[in-house]
Amino acid sequence: MEFFLQNVVNALQWGSFYALIALGYSMVYGVLLLFNFAHGDIFMVGAYVGFFVATGLLLLVSSLGLVSMPGWVVLVLVILVAMFITAFVGVAVERIGYRPLRQAPRASAAITGLMIGIIFETGNLALLGARRLSFPELIETTTYTIGGVTVTNKRIMIVAVSLLLMFALHQFVQRTKWGMAMRAMAYDFAVVPLMGVPLNSIAALTFGLGSALAAAAGILFGVAYPVLSPYMGIVVGWKAFVAAILGGRGSILGAALAGFLLGFIEIFVATIFPSTLRDLIAFSIILLILVFRPHGFFGEAHTSRLRL
């Protein structure tokens, strides 16, 4: 039982990353009916932006002699600033890679997305070199043991911040005018521009929001696993993409839940079986789910075809 609970805690943390990234994929799909394949790398960019903001902030704090600023305040600031900056990266990706291809086949947009991702990875490598950066330790780790289950304050913080962000996104989409426009777009792509809602603004907003969430995921990832690398976004990104599909395209709730589900599958597979089998079993389960539940958990049953 303790063993089980311990893994639930681990899986919640692991799933938070997937869920936050999957939301970005899902929102973009909802609005534009295509996937942003650069999203995994935006997660990476977010982590690096977070790194620089954090280092800069720490430097500023120490040079001004404001030693009294607590670590969690710095972390919150870092998250907010990095989210803000990365949102603009997302908007730029949309502007350069997706807007010119609005009328093109979906597969072409997929290719541009992939290519932008490669540019991010290589650009990072070219600018920063192959050295591995290590995310600064903003808050000290405190470990609590509750009934045999070990929980660190970082873990609690990661899950809490993720849930908070998801809640905020939900409120935004449900309550605001812009969120309503996004939902309307997901409902009928063709009609909304006719109603006077500018498609381009909505698309940019969606990319921005998704990228901001990915940046938050990147920083939280950096807090949990401090070593950053230009290729850190690839595998995590593709897996989150799978989660977005599992959750049903365009469904925000579905993407979040599927992100956590994927985290659970991976953590439990890794604890029960040798860790080398993790991908094998996790993806076999995903394949089986998709074969027998071909439209995910929350997606509506309509088959789309590639527009050629």
């Binding site: 996937f35 991908d279 094998l280 071909p294 789309s304």
Partner: peptide, 29 residues
């Protein structure tokens, strides 16, 4: 091929992506 009878588009893309990961990690094991 067999899932492609019922599924098209994005879901089939994911099935094929999962297949690629499975083959790779199967050989690794």
């Amino acid at each position: 091929a067999i899932p492609s009878f019922r599924t098209r588009g994005d879901y089939l893309a994911i099935i094929s992506l999962a297949f690629m990961f499975i083959v790779k990690s199967l050989i690794e094991n």
